[in-house]
């Protein structure tokens, strides 16, 4: 794509941002049971309706980052770690991952499989196509793919977070107090990894 075509597409995305975001949000929350989706779409108070409002905000931030993405970003930044460590676009990937964090962090504790948790990202392709009509080339879809990869990354990080909390909570809360007091010396693997029944 020529630079001015890119500028043109980005301008189109900006102009239609509200419409696209509304559809994208609806697509994301339609992954919940219907009754839930209705309530999530209803209240605009971010404290009464955290999932709805955090999802909306996170999608908006991600969308803004998609517009900011440059053509130079490519799959290699994700697949080749050595490459990505030194590549200046790594910053861009982090930016996308950070903007996805709030929505993914929620979905990581809601019993979604990994694919269900990130599927909403792909819906953006069809939505943008339906709003803007024919796109000049594949570059936009390609950007969405990069976002999807970032979403998988973040989902994995959140799940690791959860596993770690699960594995160490009892130890950190109860056993560390005993250890400081010198009342226990060593713990078995079982005690460390078991549920916090002690």
């Amino acid at each position: 794509m020529m630079p001015n075509q890119l500028i043109d597409l980005n301008r189109q995305l900006e102009l239609n941002k509200e419409k696209i975001l509304t559809l994208w949000f609806e697509a994301a929350i339609s992954s919940y049971p219907e009754d839930t989706a209705r309530l999530l779409g209803k209240s605009k108070n971010r404290f009464d309706n955290p999932v709805g409002n955090i999802t909306r905000q996170s999608l908006e931030d991600t969308f803004d980052n998609i517009i900011r993405m440059s053509l130079a970003e490519n799959y290699k930044d994700y697949t080749n770690s050595k490459h990505s460590q030194t590549n200046k676009e790594h910053v861009g990937q982090n930016r996308v991952e950070n903007s996805l964090d709030p929505v993914i962090r929620i979905r990581a504790v809601q019993n979604f499989s990994a694919s269900q948790a990130v599927a909403f990202v792909f819906e953006l392709k069809a939505i943008v196509k339906s709003v803007l009509g024919k796109l000049p080339d594949e570059s936009f879809n390609y950007r969405v793919d990069l976002v999807a990869l970032a979403a998988f990354n973040r989902f994995m990080k959140c799940r690791e977070n959860i596993f770690l909390l699960k594995a160490t909570e009892a130890k950190r809360r109860v056993h560390s107090a005993f250890e400081r007091a010198g009342l226990v010396t060593e713990l078995t693997e079982d005690e460390l990894l078991g549920s916090s029944k002690s």
Partner: peptide
């Protein structure tokens, strides 16, 4: 999937 949920449908009361 996405076109099933229009904003006004979102505002519907649940039964």
């Amino acid at each position: 999937m996405s076109d099933e949920l229009k904003p006004d449908a979102l505002l519907d009361r649940i039964d």
